[in-house]
C-alpha cells in the first residue's frame, strides 16, 4: 500500500513474557485517513494486543508504528492527544455518576468548563442517556455502561479512534446507535480502527477489513472485494470461517 498511509504498522510483534507463541506476529498494516478499518479475528487472535500497542498501553516487542507521520515510540505524548480509545472492558468509576466520569475523562484531555459540559450532555442525549447524567454507573445496565464507555473515548473529538469490540453484549437498538455514531464521526474526518466479532456489522460499516489469526494477517481488503474474490463465499462470515477454520479457540 501507499507510503502515505495515515497509520503504518510494520513488522509489529508482541511476545508476552513467559509465553512461547507471540500474541502478535510480524503484523504489517496500512490504514488510510478517513477509513473505518475492521480488525477481525477469532478469540485470542491478537486484536486487543494490537490495539493496546497502538494506544500506548503496552510496548511492542519489535516493529514500527507510525501514526499521522509521527513515530509512536518517540512521539506518544503528541499522539495521545489525537487518539481516542474505547477499551473492550468497561473502564469507568462505578461509584461516580455518568457525568462525573465523563467530566473526569474530559478534563484528562484538557477539556473544561461549559464547553465540556455541553459536549457531555449532547453525547449523552445522542446515546439515549438523557436524564441519567446524575446516576451512578453502578446503577446502569450493561448497554448503558457500554455507551458511557464509548463517550469517554470520543469527548475530545479524536482524529484517530480505536475501539475494541464496542458493540459486544448490547441490544440491537444500542448497536444501531453506536454504528450510526461511528459513521457520523467518520464523515467528520475521524479515522477509525475497530475490532468486532459481528461479521455482518463489519461488512456494512467498514471501508476496509483485515482478518487476523494467531497474530498474523490472513486476508486484507475491502469487504465487497473480498467476498467477490473468495469462491463459495456470500458473506464476510463465510470467508471468516473458511480462513480461520471451525476449531474452537482459547
Amino acid at each position: 500500500m501507499d507510503k502515505e498511509a495515515f497509520i503504518r504498522i510494520k513488522g509489529l510483534t508482541k511476545r508476552y513474557k513467559n509465553t512461547v507463541e507471540p500474541a502478535v506476529d510480524g503484523l504489517d498494516l496500512n490504514i488510510n485517513k478517513g477509513e473505518i478499518f475492521g480488525l477481525l479475528g477469532p478469540n485470542g487472535a491478537g486484536k486487543t494486543t494490537t490495539l493496546s500497542i497502538l494506544c500506548n498501553q503496552i510496548p511492542a516487542t519489535s516493529g514500527k508504528v507510525v501514526i499521522s507521520g509521527l513515530l509512536l515510540k518517540t512521539h506518544n505524548r503528541e499522539l495521545k492527544k489525537i487518539i481516542g480509545v474505547v477499551p473492550q472492558e468497561i473502564a469507568l468509576f462505578e461509584k461516580l455518576t455518568a457525568y462525573e466520569n465523563l467530566r473526569f475523562f474530559g478534563n484528562m484531555y484538557g477539556l473544561r468548563g461549559s464547553e465540556l459540559k455541553s459536549r457531555i450532555l449532547d453525547c449523552m442525549r445522542y446515546f439515549g442517556l438523557e436524564g441519567k447524567a446524575d446516576k451512578k454507573i453502578e446503577t446502569f445496565s450493561g448497554g448503558m455502561k457500554r455507551r458511557v464507555n464509548l463517550i469517554a473515548g470520543i469527548l475530545h473529538k479524536p482524529e484517530v479512534l480505536f475501539l475494541d469490540e464496542p458493540t459486544v453484549g448490547i441490544d440491537v437498538q444500542s448497536k444501531t446507535v453506536i454504528v450510526d455514531f461511528l459513521k457520523q464521526l467518520n464523515k467528520e474526518g475521524a479515522t477509525i480502527l475497530y475490532t468486532s466479532h459481528h461479521m455482518d456489522e463489519a461488512e456494512h460499516l467498514c471501508t476496509h477489513i483485515a482478518i487476523i489469526d494467531k497474530g498474523k494477517i490472513i486476508t486484507n481488503g475491502k469487504p465487497a472485494e473480498l467476498i467477490k474474490s473468495e469462491e463459495n463465499c456470500d458473506t464476510l462470515e463465510d470467508i471468516f470461517l473458511k480462513l480461520t477454520g471451525r476449531k474452537l479457540r482459547d
Binding site: 500506548n56 498501553q57 480509545v85 477499551p87 473502564a91 468509576f93 462505578e94 484528562m108 484531555y109 469517554a152
Partner: peptide, 11 residues
C-alpha cells in the same frame, strides 16, 4: 476496572 489502562492512553 481498566481505568488505569485507559488513563495510560491519555496525555
Amino acid at each position: 476496572s481498566g481505568v488505569a489502562m485507559r488513563l495510560k492512553t491519555m496525555p
